[in-house]
Design a protein around this nucleic acid. Structure first.
Lengths: 142, 142
DNA sequence: GTAACTGCAAAATATTTGCATCCTT
DNA sequence: AAGGATGCAAATATTTTGCAGTTAC
């Protein structure tokens, strides 16, 4: 059976393996970003810790996922949009981190504004991290 | 001798010690952000690694410095503006990370734009990280 | 003098690397 | 069959914790 996941891997010249499919499916079926720990947990003891590290690294290199900047020391990953290709990522990401449930989401609908930089500075990418309360948590607390 | 550093510590109800003054001075005398490693290096073998960890943590708690979100896994710290107080930080930070020299700067002159969030979401803070080439590196490469 | 801070040792975590084996193509 | 991917072991690196000695107030 050929799935979307297989295609995605194929398009990136990666061999199709169980761990890659599994880890990739976690991203596809999950809105929001995942930290390394989340992936190990959700994969359910199935893979070696090292495999997760290497798989994530490979995915980042191929432009399938990207890292999300956060203020804590946890590196989080999220699926890239289609126009992210190897070595060249989409410029404007807006991420939302909920203070309550600690979930991280990519807000695809929201465009990052262009930033006016001081003279002489050249911007390549602009990443925006908004922290606050997400819709679900806000409704819960009312 | 009473210095600005002493004052800053006093204002935050911290006892004035050598390591705190030294680490704080690194921030004051350095435009830009510092990672844990930078601080250990610049302090010059003078302090225990653990002291640096604890001092940074204390400073963050007191609102003297804040962490900067970045896509790599290095946590960087920078001085807070005066209106950062314990538990309540200034809302809009714009940071610039140079791809060449890897320096991180706070762009105080640049204001972060307000972000239009989806319905139901409430923003508390907006952090903007711009990566690109800083003025110095750009001039060098020309 | 007392409370707070530091340094050392060591524990707990996180990440990377080498290599033999197994799987994909 | 060949190259790449995985799993295990172990080496590194990072961060945290406990405690005794020292310092600031």
């Amino acid at each position: 059976m050929t799935t979307d996941l297989d295609d995605l891997l194929k398009r990136n010249h990666l061999s199709i393996t169980e761990s890659r499919k599994k880890i990739l499916s976690l991203f596809v079926n999950h809105t929001g970003a995942l930290a390394h720990g989340d992936i190990e947990k959700k994969a359910g003891e199935k893979f070696d810790r090292v495999t997760v590290y290497r798989t994530l690294q490979t995915f980042v290199e191929k432009g399938i996922i990207h890292t999300i900047p956060t203020s804590d020391n946890m590196v989080r990953y999220a699926l890239c949009k289609d126009n992210c290709t190897e070595g060249h990522h989409h410029d404007n990401h807006v991420h939302f981190v909920c203070k309550e449930c600690n979930k991280t989401e990519c807000l695809d609908k929201v465009t990052a504004p262009s930033i006016e930089l001081p003279y002489g500075y050249v911007a390549k990418t602009v990443e925006v991290v908004v922290t606050g309360i997400c819709k679900e948590c806000r409704e819960k607390s009312q």
